[in-house]
Amino acid sequence: MISLNAVLLISFALFSIGIAGVLIRRNALVILMCVELMLNAANLNFIAFARHSGSAAGQAFALLVMGFAAAEVAVGLALVVALYRRRDTVQVDDLNLLKG
């Protein structure tokens, strides 16, 4: 039996790496991947808690989150492509249109 805390620890570390990537990288593609990583960490938690509490709901919701992640990637990548067409860059540092 895998202990719940071990799973939570791994998932926490994955989430931290994801949030670190979102905060420190400047490439929009890598930022999007880091967001996916954070969703995966949340999924890992869902499954760990489903196992711990013995309910199928956690796994069902993990499946829903997976579909949601797919939708998010589709829109995010379309945004990146549109951005590249208009501004010729995918570096988030260059996107300061709304900066005062």
Binding site: L23, I24, R25, R26, N27, L29, L32, M33, E36, A69, A70, V73, A74, L77, V80, V81, Y84, V90, Q91, V92, D93
Partner: peptide, 25 residues
């Protein structure tokens, strides 16, 4: 998802940036 990412990476020409400083300011 990974296939989508690969498509976009190849669509968006990233090599021309030659970023030395990959991290945010």
């Amino acid at each position: 998802i990974v296939v989508l990412f690969l498509f976009v990476v190849m669509l968006v020409e990233l090599t021309k940036y030659k970023e030395k400083d990959i991290f945010h300011t």
